[in-house]
């Protein structure tokens, strides 16, 4: 409570950067799935949870080193996402509210299935000793692992940007996002684009999960903690990559500053009220593409 001097402000800003990177990493898969495919994926939190569990599985049963678990989780969760898209989501593309409900059902099923297989007791991910140390620069104190998360987030954002704006597949994705029918008439297989984008978004959630499993303990319910926050980032950002990067950064920093002045929970409440008021002025979010009525 109380005053905020320069030192603690800088500390809060650095911590805010770390919070922002976590929220952005949780939100980026969701942004892609919403922005391109138009699906509100309520099972996103469970994709994150699956990422953490697949890392746990690979680490404790196959002895995979942690750094290799991250890309492996991407592959595993992307494959699960692919199956869910082909088996369920693709039938619901023209019913946005129903995709929301169906993915809720998916989230319940995934959570319970994991609970039946692994039990409800917490699991832990082991990391190299270097990652669990702390870094001290002047008065700023930050754990090395949080810096790893920031680096991975930056890498994921850069990679996604490259994929979407510098490759042939990315051009197809953007064409389908702008106008599905027109793109299809130019010979782009829209159904395939949707399928791969959904799998990509799920895979990115898997990456997030393998990192969040270290930040927190691994539990079947761990996804729910991230999903609401991730949605707020997507809604505030307007569903574009750039929007999510800015929204994630802004909300993370604000959360950290508010928390430094009051406390964590109250900061979250305040941040949420701000987002509601913001949406009142700009319902389309920070950087929304010009809306097309379909």
């Amino acid at each position: 409570m109380g005053s905020l001097d320069l030192n603690s402000l800088i500390n809060a800003l650095v911590l805010g950067l770390s919070i922002a990177s976590i929220w952005l990493l949780a939100a980026i898969g969701l942004t892609i799935i919403y922005g391109v495919v138009g699906v509100i994926n309520m099972a996103h939190g469970e994709f994150i949870m699956l990422g953490a569990y697949s890392s746990y599985l690979l680490q404790s049963y196959f002895g995979l080193p942690f750094l290799l678990c991250i890309p492996a989780s991407f592959v595993v969760v992307a494959a699960i996402g692919l199956v869910i898209e082909r088996g369920l989501i693709r039938y619901l593309y023209n019913r946005p509210l129903d995709t929301l409900l169906a993915t809720w059902g998916v989230s319940i099923v995934l959570m319970q299935a994991v609970r039946l297989i692994f039990g409800s007791d917490p699991k832990y991910l082991a990391v190299p000793a270097l990652f669990s140390s702390n870094l001290q620069i002047g008065f700023i104190n930050l754990s090395v692992f949080r810096i790893v998360v920031m680096a991975v987030t930056a890498l994921v954002v850069a990679g996604t940007w490259f994929l979407f704006y510098r490759t042939r597949f990315g051009m197809q994705v953007r064409a389908v996002t702008q106008n599905k029918e027109m793109a299809a008439s130019f010979g782009i297989n829209a159904s395939r684009v949707y399928m791969l984008t959904f799998a990509l978004g799920a895979g990115l959630a898997g990456v997030a999960g393998s990192l969040f499993g270290v930040l927190n303990i691994v539990l079947p319910t761990m996804g729910t903690a991230y999903v609401v926050q991730a949605f707020l980032v997507v809604v505030t950002g307007g569903g574009t990559l750039l929007g999510s990067v800015f929204a994630g950064g802004l909300t993370g920093e604000l959360q950290s500053i508010f928390a430094a002045v009051t406390n964590d929970t109250f900061a979250r409440f305040l941040l949420f009220l701000l987002i509601v008021v913001f949406l009142w002025f700009r319902p389309q979010g920070l950087f929304a593409p010009r809306s097309v009525r379909r």
């Binding site: 509100i40 946005p96 509210l97 929301l100 609401v228 949605f231 707020l232 809604v235 929970t265 979250r268 409440f269 949420f272 009220l273 987002i275 509601v276 008021v277 949406l279 009142w280 002025f281 319902p283």
Partner: peptide, 25 residues
């Protein structure tokens, strides 16, 4: 607040969910 800003459909669902979790905390 929400409906005047024409927040509707899935977005309203998310906002109501977020409001609920804010109150919960």
């Amino acid at each position: 607040l929400m409906f005047r800003a024409r927040v509707s459909g899935p977005f309203f669902a998310i906002m109501s969910l977020a409001m609920l979790s804010a109150l919960f905390t």
